[in-house]
């Protein structure tokens, strides 16, 4: 009885409680589906761990982007351009690193670790600038974020595709270590990046003026302005942060496979990122959002994909399940609010 009342109050008052419960249930389900048909606990555990590492690694890039998307949505905005920004910053990474005749850094005689570090810095700055460009257009031009990022989505990809036409840069093998370095048998670098960034952004959202200002701007822009919050600056910084996070995802992607398909990479990524944020309790109306919730949301979607895979559900049907999860999650949160 005591447990039931505890559970009920938690369910009602803790916004992330239901999301966490849903995640735990899916993990238990997944564990059972994987089965226990192994010789020893050791081999079962290894297989279970490997499965999880795969899930996490495959979703690290989009998971990082979803974190930035959470902040963007919390200000009452949206960023449809993340997929195209990913392609643009990814292409730039490859141009800088190219070991062939056109590679910028190799032309300047830079190779190895200094070249890698310089590349990362330049690409992060590029991501920042692309995001800031979107932010400036939204704030100074007073154009709705949906429109600006829709336009940027088309522009960034199209320009990238044009310049990368018939050009196939070769990324040095050593660069791939950034994502592919192994700890023993485990390739977990992307997971580490994701976890570190999630922690930093969690801290930012909870403990910094910037984090609180994001909520203020998204919840009541007028009141925030009249309280001395520099609304435009907050928005600009949110989109710039989004750009930086996308460029990190781009570096991870390039260093995982050494190449990128500029016409298809990142397509639909904005929707996946929005879905993760929404499943995690972020309100599309702005003001309400949870960094941790977005991590849960990303994991729920990822585990579900894994489950559908294990169950052998046909690929075309899997998207439908994703859709159901998104709507279901919001319905669940709605219930909490009114009861």
């Amino acid at each position: 009885m005591k447990f039931l009342t505890w559970f009920k109050t938690k369910w009602k008052n803790e916004p992330l409680f239901s999301t966490a419960i849903a995640l735990i249930i899916m993990i238990i389900l997944q564990t059972f589906v994987l089965g226990f048909d192994y010789d020893s606990f050791g081999s079962w555990f290894e297989s279970w761990t490997n499965n999880w590492i795969n899930i996490l690694r495959n979703n690290a890039g989009i998971g990082i982007i979803a974190l930035g998307m959470t902040f963007v949505i919390m200000t009452g905005g949206i960023d449809l351009a993340v997929g195209s920004t990913l392609v643009a910053t990814g292409a730039f990474t490859m141009i800088l690193l190219d070991t062939g005749t056109k590679g910028i850094l190799s032309m300047l005689g830079m190779t190895g670790i200094p070249a890698f570090i310089l590349t990362i810095i330049i690409v992060l700055i590029l991501g920042y600038l692309l995001g800031a460009l979107i932010g400036v257009t939204i704030t100074k031009g007073n154009v709705p974020p949906f429109i600006v990022t829709l336009g940027a989505m088309l522009i960034f990809r199209s320009v990238t595709q044009h310049f990368m036409q018939g050009y196939n840069p070769k990324v040095p093998m050593e660069f791939l270590e950034i994502a592919s370095f192994r700890f023993g048998n485990y390739m977990i670098m992307p997971i580490i990046y994701w976890a570190v960034i999630a922690y930093i952004l969690y801290y930012v959202s909870k403990r910094t003026t910037f984090g609180r200002q994001i909520i203020a701007v998204g919840s009541n822009e007028r009141a925030a302005k009249l309280s001395g919050v520099n609304v435009n600056k907050v928005k600009l910084r949110v989109y710039a942060l989004m750009g930086v996070l996308v460029s990190i995802a781009a570096i991870i992607q390039v260093s995982r496979v050494g190449s990128m398909d500029f016409s298809n990479a990142g397509r639909g990524m904005e929707m996946d990122a929005i879905a993760a944020a929404v499943v995690g309790g972020t309100s599309m109306a702005g003001g309400r959002g949870f960094v941790l919730g977005t991590v849960y949301g990303m994991l729920i979607i990822a585990v579900m994909n894994n489950l559908l895979n294990l169950f052998g559900v046909p690929p075309f049907l899997r998207e439908a399940f994703k859709g159901l999860i998104v709507i279901g999650a919001v319905l669940l949160q709605r219930k909490e609010k009114t009861s």
Partner: peptide, 24 residues
């Protein structure tokens, strides 16, 4: 309601939004 309070922030956050920068 429109200009003064921010409903997604709690009481103390509403009472301190102006001075966040001074206390950080």
């Amino acid at each position: 309601k429109e200009n003064g309070i921010i409903k997604d922030l709690n009481i103390i956050e509403n009472a301190s939004i102006v001075t966040w920068s001074r206390f950080s």
